[in-house]
Amino acid sequence: MDIRMNRYELELYIAGQTPVSRRAVANLRKLCERDMPDACRMVVIDILERPAVAEEKKILATPTLIRAYPPPPCRIIGDMSDMEKVVFYLDMSAVETMPAPREGEKQ
């Protein structure tokens, strides 16, 4: 397995353990852990527990996925039912075609 040079930081905002939330978490986890391990760090934030964070980040819909890194930040909403689209909108497709970086650039 190649060691990726790109590192993505993804924040997923959900509102409690609804079916939609669970689907979104599962879909994203699949992307991050199975398809691009090491290239992707994801954080799940339940806004029911942290409403002030929702206000600060101006989250409107749930689930909301924010690509916090690399800039510029961008966001998509929904249960991520179509991962191809997610990869496309977050501009993560570059990961797949990226040549292997030199050793030591991990992290």
Binding site: V20, R23, L60, I76, I77, D79
Partner: peptide
């Protein structure tokens, strides 16, 4: 806002 799949405005 790009929507992929179902969502709500719970936030």
């Amino acid at each position: 806002i790009t929507a992929i799949g179902t969502f709500d405005l719970a936030a």
